[in-house]
Amino acid sequence: MIETIFFEEQISNHPTTERIRKALPRSTWVPIERYQELFNKRHQNFKLQKKNPALILAKKHENFVLPVPSGFGMDSHKNFYFSHMYNCLYDCKYCFLQGLYSSANFVLFVNYEDFFHSISEKIAEYKGKSLTFFSGYDCDSLAFDKLSGFADHALTFFETFPNVELELRTKSIAINSLLQRKPLDNCIVAFSLSPSEIAKSMDSKAPNINRRINAIKQLAETGWKIGLRFDPLIYTSNWKNLYSSLFEEILNGLNPSMLHSISYGPLRFPKKMYKKAASLHPEQKLFAFPMEETKGIVSYGKKIETEMHDFLKSELNKYTSENKIFQCTI
């Protein structure tokens, strides 16, 4: 349970705030003026905070929808992302959020309606073009859903725009809000996955891979389109076997018509984020590998990246057509 909830006074009567208040009556509720006064404070310790994060309920005022950076890897005319939340319930060792934010507290922007208004404007601006909106860039789309109720709002909204795609990216198995409704043809539930051994070592607090695969199969069987995201790819001594087995485990038995897309991307960090993540986990083997730095980006280097790319592409081609496979390079 979340013990402490900081809430901006301006949204204290917002329906989402009231719903969360009813769900968490025993938590300590502390009023604040703006979420930044807490979230952006200096001298916060992300790692310690992660042990008992607080929830911050806030109102987002601008930049509801942003274009995804080039290299994101999907082939819509235009891709956008939005973040109704900052930070994640899980504690994955490779996660860039630990390098991005100084705080591990969860920020939930309760004014979902303003996100949808902004998305409507983008849809109108690019009328007739194929658009995809990604949720789950700065958070996990579903992990917090039981409390936030966001997925249900988003699906109700996107139901009215059948030509526009919504991707919910997640590691969560909290899929009840999806199973309880008719599948949306324009919604892709995209699961982030790593081989079981890697996830066991690095995806702290996240559901294990078997449970994620079960959730995928359950969703696919009920008609939801599935995205598979192998990002970041982790290099380790027997990585080829690990990834081959994982592909086999997921893709054998998954109805190909329910597979929307597969994407993969190498482990990469902006230099500053890498340094911060490594300093938070100095004992982690992930941060002991002799990474290379090119133009401010820390990675395994071209040789390993190419080897991983070539192998993955040829392995994945065994299961699905090339036009469903994308490489993410950011």
């Binding site: 013990e3 402490t4 900081f6 938590s27 300590t28 502390v30 604040i32 003026e33 006064e37 807490l38 404070k41 310690l48 905070q49 042990k51 008992n52 607080a54």
Partner: peptide, 27 residues
């Protein structure tokens, strides 16, 4: 104290990790 406000300057601080199981939290 999970929120500390300076009446004089208006500065606001949020010290510590919450220990709500042991101590009630207050401003």
């Amino acid at each position: 104290a999970v929120k500390v406000v300076s009446k004089e300057s208006g500065a606001v601080f949020f010290p510590g990790l919450r220990l709500s199981k042991l101590l009630p939290a207050e401003t």
